[in-house]
């Protein structure tokens, strides 16, 4: 069922409540993009988490409003060019801020299960969905999904970019239960953030004739912070 942009979590609660009233065990899954999750749908999502309704909510995060033409969302990373954060001016692209880190916001609700995943590792994603469906209560899976059009990257690089997001440390892949991190996907081959950023035209302004090393360093610092925050180890294959 599709109702509105910002109410997937609340509609899911309604379906769950109906199933419970009718004594049926039909499970409920809600899905939204990053805009419908971190921005316009955050209130209903937080309400569903807080009530611990038996709903699995999956966010497909491509880091901007791609359907309407690549406008910035609360999930758009710093320095990224979008149609509403153009690569012009003194600080081109999106601003540096706190970001809206929905997995951690979900964890703060102390719901039974939170996981992140990327399309680069479908076995990992599948295992997390299966695990989520074996748990009752509010569950949240945040999936990083590159958007060739919005990111300005080649379609053939979609899986590669998702992998580089994880291997650079910019997108930590982990699981958390009741607010505590319980598992982290190790990095097989750690890469500098430039390896992830450079193939994407949304970051092209960082790599002009004079590379914007200051901005690149700030992004690298974010990756480094993720590695220490989630204790992500680099493992040699």
């Amino acid at each position: 069922m599709h109702s509105l942009f910002g109410n997937a979590a609340a509609v899911a609660t309604g379906v769950f409540a109906a199933m419970r009233a009718k004594g049926r065990d039909t499970r409920v899954v809600a899905q939204a993009g990053d805009g419908g999750t971190v921005d316009i749908g955050l209130g209903p999502l937080s309400g569903m988490f807080e009530r611990n309704d038996d709903v699995l909510f999956i966010c497909y995060d491509n880091e901007a409003y791609m359907n309407t033409g690549v406008q910035r969302s609360g999930a758009t990373p710093p320095a990224a060019r979008t149609a509403t954060t153009q690569a012009v001016g003194e600080h081109p692209g999106n601003v540096f801020g706190q970001g809206k880190d929905l997995p951690r916001i979900a964890m703060a609700h102390e719901i039974p299960y939170v996981a992140t995943a990327t399309v680069a590792d479908l076995r990992d994603l599948e295992a997390k969905v299966e695990k989520a469906m074996a748990i009752r209560g509010a569950r949240y899976i945040h999936v990083l999904v590159p958007c060739p059009l919005g990111w300005g990257s080649a379609s053939k690089d979609t899986i590669l970019l998702a992998r580089l997001a994880q291997q650079s440390g910019l997108f930590p892949v982990f699981e958390a239960e009741f607010g505590e991190v319980t598992a982290v996907l190790p990095i097989r081959r750690r890469v500098p953030v430039t390896e992830y950023l450079q193939p994407q035209k949304r970051y092209a302004h960082l790599f002009g004739q004079t590379p914007d090393t200051e901005t690149i360093e700030r992004i690298q610092a974010q990756a480094d912070r993720n590695l220490s925050r989630y204790h992500i180890d680099e493992v040699e294959i």
Partner: peptide, 25 residues
């Protein structure tokens, strides 16, 4: 049987009602 759902806004109240009604409740 009746589920009483305390929601976080009126937008959610109507949205929960929509989901419930669509599921036949």
């Amino acid at each position: 049987p009746c589920e009483f759902v305390n929601v976080e806004s009126e937008f959610a109240a109507m949205s929960v009602a929509i989901g419930a009604s669509a599921a036949g409740a």
